[in-house]
Lab assay of single mutants.
Amino acid sequence: MPSETPQAEVGPTGCPHRSGPHSAKGSLEKGSPEDKEAKEPLWIRPDAPSRCTWQLGRPASESPHHHTAPAKSPKILPDILKKIGDTPMVRINKIGKKFGLKCELLAKCEFFNAGGSVKDRISLRMIEDAERDGTLKPGDTIIEPTSGNTGIGLALAAAVRGYRCIIVMPEKMSSEKVDVLRALGAEIVRTPTNARFDSPESHVGVAWRLKNEIPNSHILDQYRNASNPLAHYDTTADEILQQCDGKLDMLVASVGTGGTITGIARKLKEKCPGCRIIGVDPEGSILAEPEELNQTEQTTYEVEGIGYDFIPTVLDRTVVDKWFKSNDEEAFTFARMLIAQEGLLCGGSAGSTVAVAVKAAQELQEGQRCVVILPDSVRNYMTKFLSDRWMLQKGFLKEEDLTEKKPWWWHLRVQELGLSAPLTVLPTITCGHTIEILREKGFDQAPVVDEAGVILGMVTLGNMLSSLLAGKVQPSDQVGKVIYKQFKQIRLTDTLGRLSHILEMDHFALVV
């Protein structure tokens, strides 16, 4: 994948999101292997301009796509893939009243899908469409860049269908997702969380590099694949309309690839034109409109599966009536509230959605109805927002919020430890010299600072030695090549209790 991002070429006709291997024109390309080798690009942008032909009021008969309808489940399912879809609609009884809503608040519980998330729908649909058009064949390999849930859905379907599955996901995604993927037989590649989507090191860039190296491999490409919004247009939206008897006044959905909100909203605009569509985008993402909503100094966020630093091709923002931004604290607070007060075992993005819903639905009156999409299960986040310690460490809970008995030293300040200034190293000294210094002084790690004293990161003896043994660096290389740029900081005025929580999850903390 090139470091400079080429513009994806656009073909003359058809839909841009065809499933299957992508040609340089962004659509299915038939021909000899030699032709494909000559024409197939190194990668295709996940934010390529959409060429979708959908228009409100256009006859369904003019759609270029294969459409399906929700099917009634048999008493005995032939395999677990038949437990994807037909998820329950559940009334939220307490939270709406707590925040003064007059309307009825309903939750579409997508964590009841077989793999635990709304992404099971698009995973199965992308595979079925690729099999139907002859792209996927027995023994082929599926590769997908994902925040985890699409990966789980694909790995689940691949396990049943017999495909090899490789999932490329950023490091910030939970260990629970990784464990589930491994249990399903998927191979996992992790990428830096802070890598831009168009960087060769991003999950998108690495996935395309693997595709170019592995024979008979395919990126189904949830960011561009029409099967993504079509899955929701054909099934999720129809289920909502049936469950609500066609009567709903507002739908609120958090947005990642945009397939969920695009597919549902398009069908609702056709069948229930008075329904307002509300999009939820986390602070630090750029999906919301108008652009002024996205202006923030924050560039990272903890909530998973929603928000991006690019506009995915499948996201149709014209069908969203209003956007709201959400933050991590309210997302996790509301997710825990949904679990504790409503018994809905949902993930953090569901918290984002409901946090926005109780604001947006203030305009609705008694007798009206708001539906929220709860995308995934708490299963993926047992060591994250479900953990009091994690919430404390991230600053989303305060010590006084917890009532468990603490040891005698818990409320003492870090400054009472009488710490001395640490050994520091410059980023320009060599790895070999740094190892000598650390061994001589008896230290395992040291902060790396520039000549102005600005902290650049941390270097550890173990990481340097393993990097040297693996051949990633040489003793003569500058130590700046092996620094940890993500590390926890703590102030002298913070409590030892807070430091204790940090050290339970990290090997060190830097006192500043």
Rank of each mutant, 00 (worst) to 15 (best):
R209L: 08
A114E: 06
G259K: 02
D47S: 07
L136N: 00
P74Y: 05
S217V: 01
H203A: 09
P6M: 10
G263M: 01
G148Y: 04
E62Y: 15
N113V: 02
L81R: 07
S175E: 11
Y223C: 06
A265L: 02
A159H: 08
E213I: 08
K247R: 13
A114C: 04
I44F: 15
K83C: 10
E4W: 12
G57L: 04
L210R: 02
A8D: 10
D133H: 11
M169C: 02
T146F: 01
L42G: 15
A38W: 03
D179W: 04
N113L: 00
F99R: 04
L101T: 04
C244P: 01
R224H: 08
T262A: 14
K137P: 08
L101S: 01
V255D: 02
P74E: 10
S27D: 11
E270I: 05
G151F: 02
L101I: 06
L77Q: 12
L184R: 02
N212A: 05
R58T: 10
A231S: 06
N216C: 14
S217P: 06
A24N: 10
P33F: 04
D249N: 06
E9K: 14
P200F: 06
R45D: 10
K172I: 02
M250E: 01
M173H: 07
I188S: 03
T235S: 14
F111E: 04
L81K: 07
L210F: 07
Y233P: 00
A60W: 11
N228T: 01
A159V: 15
R161P: 07
E131K: 14
R51N: 09
T191I: 02
W208D: 11
A226L: 07
R51V: 06
L241Q: 03
N212K: 12
S63W: 00
D140P: 05
G116M: 13
C15M: 08
D129E: 15
S117C: 04
H22Q: 11
L220C: 04
S19M: 09
A130Y: 00
V206R: 03
D238Q: 03
H67Y: 03
P170Q: 01
G85Y: 03
T260Y: 00
P138A: 06
G259N: 03
R164D: 04
C244S: 02
T68F: 14
L154N: 00
M250K: 06
K247G: 08
S175H: 10
C52P: 00
R266A: 07
I84N: 08
E131N: 11
R121A: 01
R266V: 06
G85D: 06
A157T: 13
C15I: 05
T262L: 02
R125W: 09
F112V: 02
L251Y: 06
F197W: 09
P145K: 00
A60L: 11
S254P: 10
M126C: 06
A237D: 08
D140N: 03
E40A: 10
K211T: 10
V204T: 12
T5S: 13
G205M: 03
T191A: 02
A60V: 11
C52T: 01
I219P: 00
E34Q: 12
C103I: 07
V160C: 07
L81M: 10
R190N: 07
D234F: 07
R161N: 10
P88W: 04
L56S: 10
I122T: 01
A158S: 07
V160T: 05
G274V: 03
I240T: 07
T236V: 02
E9G: 11
E40V: 07
V160Q: 14
P70L: 11
K75R: 06
N194F: 15
I84T: 12
S199E: 06
G57H: 09
T5Y: 14
S50G: 06
C52I: 00
R161H: 09
P192N: 06
P16E: 09
K247V: 02
G139I: 05
K177Q: 03
S50H: 05
P215C: 00
P12N: 11
M250G: 02
S32L: 11
A207G: 04
E37R: 09
A60I: 11
R266E: 08
R164C: 13
C109T: 06
V10T: 12
F99G: 14
T135C: 03
I84S: 09
S50Q: 06
G153I: 01
V178M: 10
V90M: 04
